[in-house]
Design a protein around this nucleic acid. Sequence first.
RNA 1: CGCGGGGUGGAGCAGCUUGGUAGCUCGUCAGGCUCAUAACCUGAAGGCCAGAGGUUCAAAUCCUCUCCCCGCAACCA
Length: 495
Amino acid sequence: MEKNKFYITTPLYYVNASPHIGHSYTTIAADCLSRFMRAQLGKDNVFFLTGTDEHGQKVQKAADAGGMSPQEFADQTVSHFKSLWEKLGISYDYFIRTTDKKHVDFVSRVLEIVYEKGDIYEDEYEGLYCTPCEAFWTKMQAGDSLCPDCKRPVELIKEKNYFFKLAKYQDWLIDHIKKNPEFIKPEIRRNEVLSFLSLNKLDDLCISRPKERLGWGIPLPFSSGHVTYVWFDALVNYISAVGDFNNKGEYSSRWWPADVQLIGKDILRQHAVYWPIMLKALGVELPKTIFAHGWWMLGDSKMSKSRGNVVNPLDMAEKYGIDTYRYFLLRDVPFGLDGNFSEEAIIKRYNSDLANDLGNLVYRTLTMIEKYYQGKIPEPGPRDEKTKEIYNKIASLPEKIKIALADYNFGLALEEIWALINLANKHVEETKPWNLAKENRAGELQSFIRLLADVIKKVSEVLYPFMPDTAEAIKAQFGETEIKKGKPLFPRIET
RNA sequence: CGCGGGGUGGAGCAGCUUGGUAGCUCGUCAGGCUCAUAACCUGAAGGCCAGAGGUUCAAAUCCUCUCCCCGCAACCA
């Protein structure tokens, strides 16, 4: 994450359903990193891309069901995503839609280039097809010759399709992953991909769908009877959003290659296998890192629409506050591992970390400034050893956070911040400022209060990428010279 | 024998690579303090580290086997 620019992407969210906690998780993580990197590199040197994937069968079916055109349907879902991101304070730089004209043209160009290169060929596709579900199944999936979805019989059908030569690049990809330990993170996912690639022979990827079966997609430039397979279309967004091909088919971009592409572990294969091979075929550089995070589970079960246990991020943000929601997601579970989501867990985090530790430190400090210094933040006083030690901690905090985030360890970064908060709370106990006041030890009291104010100012500064509103609120309470006390930031939630 | 991850005080986790007093957060209990949101600080209780065997002076940590839980297993985002 060094260098002078930082390009980060989220996956393109598929518009067949409304946003859930998983979407918000990836996007909040990306937002946090973007805000952090803007502070490091300057606003103009960071590019944060998100957007929506809008083609394909599922969208068409959902649109049909709602009596809309696919485009109308997509427009509607896109507005849900956009308003959610606005509510959650997501600072994306660009929102790409795969139905954008630029993207459609770009995909077309990509297909031409790969086709001309000879990495796309025509062949007969044979598979087990379930007509009512409009889906193909593998032999394994439909072992009993019944559709795993609807349990009706599948039939073997053949159709003409276009294939992308994945297999040709298999060894190259294995080699790339082995040589670049940073390419797939965390390590567990890297090992997973590596073992998958080593143990299985890749089949070429079918990248077309006959128009009569699926009309909602980008037409293949070399076959009027087919549209592009959604993944082949969608993945290209990461480069279509930020660059162009010249007439020789060479790609150039100020931002590409991406510094990190955040994804959920469910779409690892597409991003760690298909995507790099597509780029290789195009002669375009590979992203530096693909980071696959874990899933949020509800109790013991996976979150899924069919089980009716989907968590609506907007409800959570409204109920507990945007920053609480952001804090919870980034702090409660290590990025990369699965986590358990529950409102009890949010409340626990809220009360212990936000209300008791941070909120209380801020509030007690404000009270003391009000009481002992009439609301004016005192000048620094003489520093004893303990005070110097705490100032050293303040000074070293940003570097610790930088190290933690360089490893995508949001939880550790927040723990570092809380270590300072807890140290300050402890310091109050040890110093007993109420005694200093009674005993007229003005110098010590002044130095002490100023220290607390300085701790809080630093905390609000480093907290900004994680909890922007809270950082602003604290900043507003602690002015240059005066304070504005107001209400507690995080009133306890009584249970 | 398909591949992979995991089983550590009431809950959630760290420690295992490079063996040597079992650590953190929350919860519980007791005390302290009063600037503070019954918040803060200190202390205590609580674990034969899934089970069995082995290596070693010494194993949560290395080796073998067993049991249990969870993902993945390819054109459906």
